[in-house]
Nucleic acid binder design. Sequence first.
DNA 1: CTGACCCTAACGAACGTTAAGTAAGGTGAG
DNA 2: CTCACCTTACTTAACGTTCGTTAGGGTCAG
Lengths: 211, 211
Amino acid sequence: MSVNQAATDVDRRACILTQAIPLFAATGYSGVSMRDIARAVGISKAAIYHYFPDKQALYLAAVEHAFTDKVEGIRRALAGGGTAIERLERFVERFTALAAGDPDFRALLQRELVDGDETRLKLLADQLFLEPYEAIVALAKELAPDLDPYLLANSVVGLVLFCFETLPLRRHLPGRKPEHEKPKTIAKHASTLLVRALGVEAAEPDGGRSG
Amino acid sequence: MSVNQAATDVDRRACILTQAIPLFAATGYSGVSMRDIARAVGISKAAIYHYFPDKQALYLAAVEHAFTDKVEGIRRALAGGGTAIERLERFVERFTALAAGDPDFRALLQRELVDGDETRLKLLADQLFLEPYEAIVALAKELAPDLDPYLLANSVVGLVLFCFETLPLRRHLPGRKPEHEKPKTIAKHASTLLVRALGVEAAEPDGGRSG
DNA sequence: CTGACCCTAACGAACGTTAAGTAAGGTGAG
DNA sequence: CTCACCTTACTTAACGTTCGTTAGGGTCAG
């Protein structure tokens, strides 16, 4: 009997990527050996070289594989109508849920930001992040014509992601509450901050405080 | 004659740390070998073991060494009087300058956030970040009593740091301007956003727009 | 038979770490 | 003063392990 679910997956190549992603996310490129990946998949090291020319190519494919799904999710989070503020709040909420639901994606992104060489970052920028980035920038232009839209777009994403980035550290700092880890709380906080900064009138469809 | 500046440094131990920090910042723990560090210092690998029991201890000492100076800088950035908004703006400006001036610190911090195990993060939290964190949280409480001060404190720091984190990626995305890399621009953007969200009246000593 | 798929076994290189030895400098006894 | 002795600070050389990668062969469907 086989140890893995190769047959149930699309194919072996996809299975290798699926198994490699959490490993690379957890300990990074140099922290994962071909042996580790082979063990996770349940095949020999040499078998991996049947699908990928070397470790670098496997890593790149894994990162692309992990990011493409998410980029599609971001695109959807940006779709739809409403005022700029409404679209901002919808994006923040969905993007937060997206980030919360996939720690591997978050870790890989963090690692690429700090570790990625020019080639890889250029590839990620051109092939994956370009479209959603421009969409967020367009939203930012609508939200605050007097602010730099590129920096604002970056801040919107950063307000969400940085919450997750610092979570393992903040767990050891005072004032920690369980709700700080919940996507709802994070999205609400980021939304509130942004809406206060960018629009006087906030859209609160799910019940509002009296004030 | 000696190849390094051991005598000019406080001592060899400090020299090893000084040389190791940029290496660890650039390629991470597993990306740097004891041979690399020894070569950078100009001594043999074995000599390092005279000062540090193993690689882990050297890495931990390097991280602590790199962070202690910065924490002192953050403390100073938070000192001084004025209104809460004024203190916020001063902190953002100085913290941005601090982060901009030391890419190694930024990289090491990013790496620890994504890579640091529980032990190391707990140590960093208790021994280094506790005091400045509480100070920023206290400031956040003043700024917006109705918001979660811990999340707000995190957002203040994140608005600055995330700009630097994404810089290597944004270099390959459209809309890139040289001023996006300048600390003045980053600080101004974060300040503007925060002041708009947290206080109606912004303190703008260097000339204000009409509006 | 062919080609896709996968194995075992091994390659050389690099890894963290240690053993053993040495040059330099101080210290105390004679 | 000098010689033996110890410690400090380092060296070279090697330890065993793990690394990425490959050679060579086996199996099985078409």
